[in-house]
Design a protein around this nucleic acid. Sequence first.
DNA 1: AATCAATTGCAACATTGTTGCGTTAAATTT
DNA 2: AAATTTAACGCAACAATGTTGCAATTGATT
Lengths: 130, 130
Amino acid sequence: MKSTRNTTAKTAVLEVFEKSKTALSHTEIQKQLNDVCDRVTIYRILDRLVNDDIIHKISNLDGTVKYAKCNHSHQRVHIHNHAHFSCENCHEITCLETVKPSYIMPHNYKVNEINFTLSGLCPKCLNSNI
Amino acid sequence: MKSTRNTTAKTAVLEVFEKSKTALSHTEIQKQLNDVCDRVTIYRILDRLVNDDIIHKISNLDGTVKYAKCNHSHQRVHIHNHAHFSCENCHEITCLETVKPSYIMPHNYKVNEINFTLSGLCPKCLNSNI
DNA sequence: AATCAATTGCAACATTGTTGCGTTAAATTT
DNA sequence: AAATTTAACGCAACAATGTTGCAATTGATT
Ligand SMILES: [Mn+2]
Ligand SMILES: [Mn+2]
Ligand SMILES: [Zn+2]
Ligand SMILES: [Zn+2]
């Protein structure tokens, strides 16, 4: 296993994730970083963090891609089997770590990863909308 | 409700879907159409077909977006609550119409749509890989 | 056949993500 | 503490995907 270095840019990105309660897109991260590093560097840092199981990637129905910090990196078998919620109003995406779908697969499939995203209205928008 | 017209381009796109057993990306559709219409027109047709509940959009973990024809447009309440399988080897995406996840949501969320994509190896690739 | 609006083509643009390469700097060794 | 090694970086250039405005076309209706 090759080591991944703790650079200032990587540390800055991790701080942004630490402060955020919701998942973040590349663009959102870039805005919060204020030219700490190049646009390309952020892409490469995100790739590394995903490979190291420190963050996970969430791709949404509308085509946007976001990332969130993992709250379970201590587990031995690391699978992102929880759901994500995508609000159609405020477009915030949050991990629903308690929501894990159960399902029955047909035979002859090997499932390595699941992506379960629900969209609709988040509690915040649901209340303010009525 | 405004009417959507049956143009030659739209008919051609629908024929492509009819022939295909797997979900198709914009690019894959374009290749099969052989300049029947412009690239932009395909985007607009796909948008229309999604709005009319004739096809549904599937966005994958790797960021690719595909579309598949609905096999249940006759139903009154039209929800795409079935799963999709994305093969990591051949990159084919298929509807698993029989696989419907069950899950328990926290209160105060309004769920309008779900997106459940599983990735791994499809039966075809699973057999040829051993 | 005339009408009208949905649809199209085209060009131009925006966003997102990737790649190559010379330089910088984190971590390890001396 | 200095030298070494190479992961990580900045920059520029490119590629893929999707969007928008507008004039021209065409499907459906009268
Ligand atoms: Mn996670
Ligand atoms: Mn469907
Ligand atoms: Zn919301
Ligand atoms: Zn396959």
